[in-house]
């Protein structure tokens, strides 16, 4: 396999903000690569640099064998771009909009086929401006596919969708992957990355904090146990309770949460600490962590 995308030490700053802070990754041809991260992580900045929409501050980027910063229309002819937000000519109908954009491509797809693909058959002759947000997003997707691209960028394709609509979009995207297209997808939904991607990079604060196949991520990060209880009402500092723990602890919503690989030892320590002081730990829970929790820990977000 050859690499469709090769990124080394990519940096992008806006004034003092380091939106992208030294990214390196590569995407193979035919692969579905997800960039997963919370709002402001730098996902859009990264994909828009790869698309040639934004200049970069530093680093090397090769997409389909060329530098997107200086590539011409031959490069864009092979690209399908679905931006996080970009307007559509509202005064045209769905069919007209697809016909308008397809002429620029050397391998334009059939308009009727595309309309079927994104399930807009009934709306084909309605003006784009009259469609709902979700329907407009499907026009966006159809426009991303109108040039029969080798490489498709989808920036948060399902954000704001209800669960049923999200599932339909997932089916559609899976369809594309079965045609051997390379797809780069950004999302802040863990389940979306897990369902669709061959490989996931978790992005936070402009850096990749974890990378791998969904199952590898689950294995390396996901197994763990969470012990939690309400903040005990004691007059002493909690160092004697927390410092000896093997896992990591943090306070959240007046509860203490401990994520650990050694639940037996840590639990023994906690209960010993409490019984020696004659305290009953209110709301004590021991649960196994979900990938979701690990992800939230990684990106440093409170759910």
């Amino acid at each position: 396999m050859t690499a469709a995308i090769e990124v080394r030490d990519l940096v992008k700053t806006y004034g003092d903000t380091r939106a992208v802070d030294g990214l390196s990754f590569s995407v193979e041809e035919g692969e579905v690569f997800a960039i997963l991260g919370p709002n402001g992580a730098g996902k859009s900045t990264t994909v828009e640099i790869l698309e040639g929409h934004r200049p970069r501050t530093g680093g090397d980027v090769t997409v389909l064998g060329v530098d997107p910063g200086s590539a011409g229309s031959g490069f864009r002819d092979r690209l399908g771009i679905v931006l996080q937000s970009a307007g559509i000519d509202r005064e045209l109908t769905v069919r007209e909009v697809l016909e308008y954009y397809r002429t620029a491509y050397s391998r334009p797809r059939d308009v009727n086929e595309l309309i079927e693909l994104v399930e807009l058959g009934e709306k084909a002759d309605d003006r784009v401006g009259t469609l709902s947000g979700g329907q407009q997003r499907r026009v966006d997707l159809a426009l991303g596919l109108v040039g029969d691209p080798d490489l498709i960028f989808l920036d948060e394709p399902t954000t704001g969708f209800d669960p049923a609509a999200r599932r339909r979009s997932w089916d559609l995207i899976r369809n594309l992957t079965s045609l051997g297209r390379t797809i780069v997808l950004t999302t802040h939904y863990l389940d979306e990355a897990e369902t669709l991607a061959d490989r996931v990079a978790v992005l936070a604060g402009g850096r990749i904090v974890a990378e791998g196949t969904p199952s590898a991520l689950r294995e390396s990060l996901g197994e763990g146990t969470r012990i939690s209880f309400e903040l005990p009402a004691v007059d002493e500092p909690l160092n004697a309770l927390l410092d000896p723990l093997r896992g990591t602890s943090r306070g959240r919503d007046r509860r203490i949460e401990i994520t650990t690989d050694a639940p037996t030892a840590d639990l023994a320590h906690i209960t010993a600490w409490a019984t020696s002081r004659g305290i009953e730990l209110a709301g004590l829970q021991v649960t196994s962590t979900e990938l979701e929790d690990v992800y939230l820990d990684l990106v440093g977000e409170d759910a």
């Binding site: 698309e51 040639g52 929409h53 229309s73 031959g74 864009r76 002819d77 690209l79 771009i81 931006l83 937000s85 970009a86 307007g87 559509i88 000519d89 509202r90 954009y101 620029a104 491509y105 050397s106 426009l143 040039g147």
Partner: peptide, 17 residues
């Protein structure tokens, strides 16, 4: 208006010179 709506940005992402 088209710039504000992001339409020009979309056009820039197509092979149209």
């Amino acid at each position: 208006t088209r710039r504000e709506d992001g339409i020009l940005r979309r056009v820039r992402g197509t092979p149209l010179p």
